[in-house]
């Protein structure tokens, strides 16, 4: 199925809600953080394993709203169209299921987001502090990318 049909089907089932775009012309779909595995399993079923790849995982600390925003940038083939899947996590205890067993390519993005922002991906055995951050920063328990980190 072409990516437009896939996305319309998922919107119809209530998994996704369209909400604006990131310039230039990358459509944003918001989903609930608890349903991430269901969403990606359905994407693989409908679009096929060779129908898309996960390009980037971006985590942003929205301190004023008390949330951490997680974006999954997915590129659909063969048109190479980039779609944003966005979700919000509570800032105090950000946890989300890991996608490592269904899409192994998220390993680098998840390890990085854990080390720098503190988002725990449940089920990912490779998460560890000190993946990138030097010792004297992670020993104090600081996540450098948070807005209130004193580095």
């Amino acid at each position: 199925m072409s990516y437009k049909d896939v996305l319309n089907k998922l919107v119809g089932e209530g998994l996704l809600t369209p909400s604006g775009e990131v310039k230039p012309h990358r459509l944003i779909y918001v989903f609930e953080s608890g349903k991430i595995r269901e969403l990606f399993t359905k994407l693989i079923d409908l679009a096929g394993v060779e129908g898309f790849y996960v390009s980037t995982i971006v985590g942003t600390d929205l301190m004023k709203d008390g949330k951490i925003r997680l974006d999954y940038y997915v590129v659909f083939l063969p048109q190479e169209e980039t779609i944003v899947f966005r979700t919000f996590l509570p800032r105090e205890n950000p946890e989300i299921d890991s996608l490592l067993d269904i899409i192994p390519g998220v390993l680098s993005g998840e390890c990085e987001t854990y080390d720098l922002l503190g988002v725990v991906f449940k089920g990912n055995p490779a998460l560890k502090r000190g993946f990138f951050v030097p010792k004297d920063v992670y020993e104090k328990g600081i996540y450098p990318l948070r807005k209130d980190a004193k580095v």
Binding site: V49, E50, Y53, V75, Q79, E80, E81, G105
Partner: peptide, 28 residues
Amino acid sequence: TKTDVLKYSLIGPPARASGVKIDARASD
């Protein structure tokens, strides 16, 4: 293989050498 390239999110020359036609110059 081509499936592994997409599952592991490989990009650039390693992906194109396995038959996956992705190039940000041609798409964007």
